[in-house]
Computed example of a mutant assay.
Amino acid sequence: MPSPDDDHTGTRIREQRRLARLTQRELANRIPYSYSLLNQVECGARPATADFVAAVAHALKVDVTTLTGQPYVTELQRDRLAELVRPIREALDLYDLGANPDLTARPAAQLVAAADRLCAEVRATHLRNAARALPGTIAELTHTAWATPSTELWRALASTYRTAHDITVKLGYYDLSAVALDRMAWAAERASDPCLGAVRQYMRALVYFREGEYTIGQRLVAAGHNVVAQAEESREALAVAGQLHLGGSVIAARADDVAAVVEHIGEARKIAKRIGDASDIHWLSFGPANVAMHRMSAAVEMGQYDNALKQARRIRLPASVATSRRAHFLIDQARTEMETGHTDAALEHLVQARKAAPEQTRYHPGARETIRGLVHTARRTPDTLNYMAAWVGL
């Protein structure tokens, strides 16, 4: 069995707790988790789940990334992904410079198509390809939108900013992802597109969900509903509203608001029944399958692992489900299998997630913590688990 290293979320929680001059008992009194669990996480005997980390970060008044160690720079450098982040950062800073007289851009129709292809690459989890193409596309769209403004071009530019957010979140650069969302709002306003504005509010809500600020997250979901209500009723507006309900369901689950979870899932299900699979709209993956996955995720977030496992085993994902969403579901299911003692099944689902989306899985905190948990609970570590642990850098 591999020896657990000293650089893990539990040790970082211990370091930050000591910097705050708190004992384990004092910190445990500030979070909705037991002293025993805190002790086990700090010593590495239990994985630090996303909800646990968010609660500790909130109590210690630090960013979640301070505790998770993101971005995972060593692995990113080894994979030659870290070098792709700086050009994205620079491209995001061009937004207010107007047209660039030294730039020759592709025709507008090609740029709009390029923005859409970037979204497709991210959903297919081809993060490296998307990250390489993104800065140039942002620069060309920025130039063209300023030179010959149109709703279509501003929408496409907002889409590239959304792609920048998606990539930087998946790689762990959360500070940069916040900048990308600000730029998305800026472009969406110029497009006068309430649906895009509502999508941005949905994504902002997930930022606060990750940070453990559930009240703010719920307010942002409500704000998103207010924004999308300004649009004419359409399949697009309904899909965005449905996705807002799904985001609201997992935020409510973390806040232990069961009634709100039931309400959000119920509303999303009604919309999905009405419009069917709408995964083509804003690349949100909205539809009946996504409603089922979010219902299962809400059970996971509420610690209802037996219920979540029953749901997960009943879900049959259609081929149309985006690879990124499929991998996220497999990681959630792996955590659920581990928490219910089905360690072999947990490992198998992690292997499936890796096969489907290697870049996304390697940098997913939930996958890494589940692998760590499996290492610590295994009496004898299978070669596959040894390989997975080494692969994510444990």
Rank of each mutant, 00 (worst) to 15 (best):
A55K: 09
T340V: 12
Y33Q: 13
G44C: 04
D257A: 13
A131F: 12
A356L: 12
D7L: 09
Q333T: 07
L244W: 00
I281N: 02
S249H: 11
K170Q: 05
A133Q: 10
T168L: 11
T144L: 14
Y208K: 10
V228I: 07
L141D: 07
A115G: 02
I138V: 15
H126K: 10
N129F: 00
I275H: 07
D175Q: 15
E189V: 10
G266K: 08
E75N: 09
H349F: 03
T9M: 02
H225T: 04
V207K: 03
V228H: 04
H245W: 10
S36L: 12
A223T: 09
L103M: 04
Y363L: 02
A120S: 11
D277R: 06
L347M: 02
D306W: 08
R274V: 01
G69E: 03
R200L: 02
Y363V: 07
N129H: 07
N39T: 14
L38K: 07
V41I: 13
P358Q: 10
R155W: 00
L127Q: 08
G242W: 15
L374A: 09
A48C: 15
R362P: 03
L76K: 12
A322K: 04
T74Y: 06
R335K: 11
I265G: 00
A109W: 11
A390H: 06
I271Y: 01
L350R: 08
W146C: 12
A57M: 11
R269P: 03
H225L: 13
E213I: 03
T384Y: 00
R210V: 03
A292R: 03
A130P: 08
L27H: 14
D96H: 13
R316F: 04
T377C: 15
A115F: 10
A253E: 01
A278K: 05
R368A: 10
V53D: 04
S3C: 03
L350T: 02
L309F: 10
Y202Q: 09
R78L: 05
Y72W: 08
T11K: 14
A108S: 14
A345L: 15
A156R: 09
L157Q: 09
A164M: 14
A357W: 06
Q333W: 10
V228Y: 07
I371D: 00
R190A: 06
V240Y: 01
H245L: 01
P149I: 14
A299K: 10
G44Q: 13
L153E: 10
W391Q: 05
T370L: 04
T384E: 15
R123C: 01
R325P: 01
V351D: 14
R254V: 02
A322M: 06
E152S: 15
A120P: 00
K61W: 12
Q110S: 14
L374M: 11
R183F: 01
E339S: 09
I281Q: 09
A231K: 06
V73W: 12
I167D: 07
S34H: 08
I88K: 07
L157K: 03
Y214R: 14
Y305G: 05
T384S: 11
R12T: 09
D93I: 01
